[in-house]
Amino acid sequence: MKSFLGKRAVTSAISLVGLIILVFFLSRLTGDPTDLYLPENATQEARDQFRAIHGLDQHILIQFGKYVTDLVQLDFGMSIRRAEPAIDAVLRGFEWTLWLAFITMTLVTVCAIVVGSLAAFHVGGIFDRVATFFSLIGASAPDFWIAIVAIVVFSVYLGWVPTSGTGTVAHWILPIAVLFIRPFGLILQVVRGSMISTLSAAYIKTARAKGVRNRPIIFVHALRNALLPVITVIGDQAAGLLNGAVIVETIFGFPGVGKLMIDSILQRDFTVVLAAIFVTALAIFVMNILIDILYAVLDPRIRY
């Protein structure tokens, strides 16, 4: 078990280093921040001074070396746009994204397991067909399209919920609903398939022959064994929420790390972009390792 987790940690660290290198050099292709933050009639002296203040006057390899040296010391640099440490801005946004992903994923997991289990128990019935139909549509529809349609219908025409912001509970409804649809459809299908296979096992037939009620059969006897493949999908979808939230947060004006990342790219705020990528990637890697540990707890064979 320790060896397995050690290998995963090393692999994740290598991937993180590669991502940092890639993002650092690609972010520089967006242009010179000097052209964005200084007026067109700024003197060359002012431009040179701006570049020197933000370390942009040095060769790109020297800039990268300094960035790596600072990163080892957990110094992510100062935000050009906000004049504050980049990590402070990222952590504020990441807290919003984490809450959004946590609430959404909790609802998705509970609903998908319950609906998927019931659909498997009534396989071929009306409930199963309806659940499968809507789950396939939800898993296929792109988030940005659902978000735009949701705003037009529920905010513009019906006026039930706000279009953006986080001031009240109503502001959270549309972002959570949009992020809910895709992972719910995917996880439901995996739960349904896994439960159908598990419910046909011999020990389930024995439990039924002994007169055990349907609810304990589904949610006690069958669900534990059926959850093993589901956990992996839940972990992937949870990580996908952190990435997918970029589009949804931007559309709904949600002040999470996704919107911060997009704004910083447009503003050429390199330090914030790199800090946001680092924190998000680190969270995803940690989440994947936790999923591996949970998988091993549920299936003792993996420990060996």
Rank of each mutant, 00 (worst) to 15 (best):
I53S: 09
I53A: 13
I53T: 15
H54P: 00
H54E: 01
H54M: 06
L56D: 05
L56R: 11
L56I: 04
D57E: 07
Q58A: 11
H59R: 11
H59T: 09
H59V: 07
I60A: 03
I60H: 10
L61G: 06
L61P: 05
L61C: 03
L61R: 01
I62Y: 01
Q63M: 10
Q63C: 11
Q63S: 11
F64Y: 15
F64M: 07
G65K: 08
K66N: 15
K66E: 14
Y67A: 01
V68C: 05
V68Y: 09
T69N: 10
D70G: 12
D70C: 02
D70T: 02
L71I: 03
L71R: 03
V72W: 02
V72H: 03
Q73E: 09
Q73P: 00
L74K: 12
D75I: 03
D75Q: 14
D75A: 06
M78L: 12
M78G: 05
I80W: 00
I80E: 12
R82A: 09
R82L: 15
A83M: 13
A83Y: 14
E84V: 14
P85M: 09
P85V: 04
A86G: 07
A86C: 02
I87C: 06
I87N: 05
I87T: 03
D88T: 13
D88C: 04
A89Q: 13
A89P: 04
V90P: 02
V90L: 08
V90K: 01
V90E: 00
L91W: 10
L91T: 06
L91P: 09
R92C: 03
R92Y: 10
G93Y: 04
W96Q: 11
W96T: 02
T97N: 10
T97G: 13
T97E: 00
T97K: 04
L98N: 03
L98I: 05
L98G: 15
W99S: 08
W99Q: 11
L100C: 09
A101H: 08
A101S: 15
A101P: 10
A101D: 06
F102P: 07
F102G: 12
I103F: 14
T104I: 08
M105D: 02
M105W: 05
T106N: 08
L107Y: 00
L107M: 13
L107V: 15
V108S: 02
V108Y: 01
V108P: 10
T109Q: 05
T109G: 10
V110F: 12
C111Y: 08
C111K: 01
A112Q: 01
